[in-house]
Amino acid sequence: MIKVKFVVNGKNVAVESSPTKTLLDILREDLGLTGTKEGCGKGECGACTVIMDGKAVTSCIVIAAQLEGKNILTVEGLSADRIGKALQDAFVDSGAVQCGYCIPGFLMSARALLEENPDPTLDEIKEGLSGNICRCTGYVKIFDGVRLAAARLGK
């Protein structure tokens, strides 16, 4: 067991864990933050995406031993984040949500994208979201959501 201290959604947390426990399991099981989802457990579907020190990462392949001092943003922290809130609102307004299970991951990838590129083209959106899989929506309204958020933030 190791002790790691890091920041989640602006709050300091300390967790005792086996060094190989994944960030995803720590969020869901130790911290009760079930908004971050598991779709594959192998970094293939993007459902567990969170932002770690400004970069979108799949939390199912980040382990406890890597977490010391890290700053993590999850879907539960998005409402307090300017870009995150705009994305949440735009996803709701665009009809980007169906079963919604992949949506937290998409929101996190989109948050990382818009921070780096506030006015992305459709191809840049597709590239930014290409690590996330959605089975319900056909992606169209998710792209709409990102564009709408970018437009609203640009005003």
Binding site: R28, T34, E76, L78, S79, F91, P104
Partner: peptide, 16 residues
Amino acid sequence: ARPKVDGSLKYPSDLY
């Protein structure tokens, strides 16, 4: 839509 974008909705796998 709202509880799905803010992470608060509990799916079957979210029950502990």
